[in-house]
Design a protein around this nucleic acid. Structure first.
Lengths: 187, 187
DNA sequence: TTGACAAGCGGAGGGAGTCTCCGTATCTTC
DNA sequence: GAAGATACGGAGACTCCCTCCGCTTGTCAA
């Protein structure tokens, strides 16, 4: 799971610069971005870009990985400081906020996740695990109902995520989070 | 809303052939399809293709339009023959089946709807209207609860649609339809 | 240090796909 | 059936993708 060989210092620097540039550029531009523009912004040549990331999806996956790691960290943090129901609600609300503020990026990633096969799904799984973790903790502790399958929550989550990304639906997303959390609480 | 000028006979024939070819080819190939392959399969030149559909999204929208029209027709039919709760359930199940059997096409359309701005959203709205129509009819007649916003159902619907398209999640989709319909029924 | 080898860099260039342009062909109308 | 309007097709310019390889830079042992 860890990289087999540590990169040379300059290579690591370039790799980081590329990911950073990609994140910026995918956030700004909503249209197809020429792949080489990323290289240009990162200040490297096309060859370097392609050595680090064999194709577009690989680069997107790297960007996505950063997002997921941040979100996952936040989930752990909330789990430690709030009761499970509240933690889940807070997490979803923050997720929506985050996605809304970065919706250019989110759209790009969504689009990629449809076309790219499993390149992004590993990271998606990490996010899913974070949510199911919160859920099952809540069930264990008796705060949340145990008769709603995690799959249903994940499906709703997907709907919510999409809603968050389309600005006209920002309100609906918040509403459904409330509805869902309420529905999940043990009454 | 109707086309301002009726197309010339040959032009209409070509347009239909292109849409048909596009539907076939997008169903078969899961990878990026060279746009001109569509022209070739339809037996027309590139110029003709581009005259009818200025870009990829316009063509996808035309294909999507056909799908939506079929689904919408089916919704009306079910509304006339079943009580609203059953009609909605049946419609969603059929929608899932349809999408699953056409998942190559569905994936392509999903991907396009993320990147393409509003090109496909008009048709998506038509579908949404069909569902909200069923919902509000059910509420009027007292079969369904009136305290669940239509937006929540639409969000879940989106999640379900995505699940239907990813074969590993086919089961979840059916489960959530049951769950949702049960939840909506007036108890 | 310094030398030698490994690792990485960059950008020229071949190939694929996109889209336009315009001379030619086909339809429609009178 | 002739004229004008409409549509066709494919050559070619352009853009973007990605590879290849001669050159540069980092690393490490002596």
């Amino acid at each position: 799971m860890t990289q087999p060989k540590p990169l040379r210092a300059d290579a690591q620097r370039n790799r980081d610069a590329i990911v950073r540039a990609a994140r910026e550029i995918f956030s700004e531009e909503q249209k197809e971005v020429p792949f080489e523009d990323v290289a240009r912004r990162a200040g490297v040549g096309a060859g370097t870009l392609y050595r680090h990331f064999p194709n577009r999806d690989a680069l997107l996956a790297a960007v996505f990985e950063g997002e997921v790691a941040a979100l996952r960290g936040r989930a752990d943090q909330l789990m430690e400081t709030l009761p499970p129901g509240d933690a889940l609600g807070a997490f979803l609300r923050e997720m929506v906020d985050h996605m809304y503020s970065q919706r250019g990026l989110a759209r790009t990633l969504f689009a990629a996740s449809e076309s790219a096969g499993g390149a992004l799904s590993d990271e998606g799984q990490v996010l899913e695990d974070a949510v199911t973790g919160m859920l099952s903790r809540g069930i264990e502790q008796g705060h949340l109902r145990d008769d709603v399958p995690a799959g249903a929550v994940m499906l709703a989550l997907h709907g919510i995520a999409v809603a968050a990304v389309h600005s006209e639906r920002r309100q609906e997303a918040d509403g459904v989070i409330e509805l869902m959390i309420d529905g999940l609480r043990r009454s």
